[in-house]
Design a protein around this nucleic acid. Structure first.
Lengths: 192, 192
DNA sequence: GGGTCAACCAAGCAAGCGCTAGTGTAAACG
DNA sequence: CGTTTACACTAGCGCTTGCTTGGTTGACCC
């Protein structure tokens, strides 16, 4: 009955839930599993969250808020050339995907499990994030760094980046920096 | 007790299951829902499939087999220039994603729900498909049509293409042909 | 030192789950 | 003709699910 605050306790529980959601998927994760992971009994869980869906929403919100904040900060700090901004966004995206991996994997895989209300709220957050991308891509298009349809290009880039959660191994030889550089090089037109 | 044949009946049931798996997700789709969609009772379902997991495996296998067959056929029929082959593969991929959408969405989203046995079997199929892609990309790299790390480039391209299931609207103004052309243009180096 | 409050627990309910057992039936087969 | 085979049915078992209820604990407050 305590719902909707954001106490530190709740944040910690959300983090642990994300871990389980990634391992098992949302539907296969039972409230009993969640409770055990959190070190409490299943009934106590509903003191912090109204229902199971709200836990999912909390996980996704946390991840998206972080990504948005980091992207904004990154854009303010980097050089103002279109290439530098494009590269910085890609690197920030990949680094968030890495440090906050659980939350983002959940957001990508379990989005459809959200109820209408939560989805409405969270899609605004996601739209704000994608707007940043489209802005950077517009700049790159205007500068002739890349060519093509802005809608398609941004979708292709987002796809390439988000797909990394399926194959990227953080302990491997390639850093997020490497990936970002390679991606920007791939879509840039050297003729420009 | 009839399991593992591939009667036309079973194929039709598989197609209907794919539809439901996309709408609801594998875990939320109950055998009773599947049976109702198929016009039979839940018990009868286990005459055609050993268990619920086998339905999932059948759906994914169907989609992957089709994609592989179409890709092979496409490669045999198209021009032999690296650019034509790259474009043809992209278009074939997108068209399969469109005509066989349900099965592919299931394959992308519900892969992790497969048990070990089925995953082993199906990952061989998927590897064969991806090998075709890597071959085409190798040719494009060798011809100087594109540049970069072959591993990263193929992952980025697969990501951009697979991500289309999230946003592509077949009833919209853009055809798979359009998308394929735009993608190839985006990653090609005009300087070459 | 009585009151408040967040945090937790024990117990369990109602509903739904995957799957099985046993049976019926109509077409196909030898 | 009798037998087999494919496909469907009814009925329900054993278990798990998300969530509720009513109560306990200990830290903090005026």
């Amino acid at each position: 009955m305590n719902v909707m605050n954001d106490s530190p306790r709740r944040k910690e529980l959300t983090r642990q839930a994300a871990q389980l959601f990634v391992q098992e998927g949302f539907d296969r994760t039972t409230v009993r599993m969640l409770a055990q992971e959190m070190g409490i009994k299943s009934g106590s869980l509903f003191h912090h969250f109204r229902d199971k869906q709200e836990i999912l929403a909390a996980v996704i919100e946390e991840g998206t808020q972080n990504a948005l904040a980091i992207a904004r900060e990154t854009l303010q700090q980097c050089d103002s050339t279109p290439e530098a901004r494009l590269h910085a966004m890609a690197r920030a995206h990949l680094e968030t995907l890495l440090t906050d991996r659980n939350a983002h994997v959940v957001a990508l895989y379990e989005w459809r499990r959200l109820d209408t209300e939560a989805r409405d709220h969270l899609s605004h957050l996601r739209d704000a994030y994608e707007a940043l991308w489209e802005q950077v891509i517009d700049e790159a298009l205007a500068a002739g760094l890349i060519h093509g349809d802005r809608f398609l290009v941004s979708r292709f880039v987002m796809g390439a980046l988000n797909w990394t959660v399926r194959w990227y191994d953080p302990s491997g030889p390639r850093s997020p920096e490497d990936l970002a550089r390679e991606l920007v090089a791939m879509i840039s037109s050297p003729a420009a």
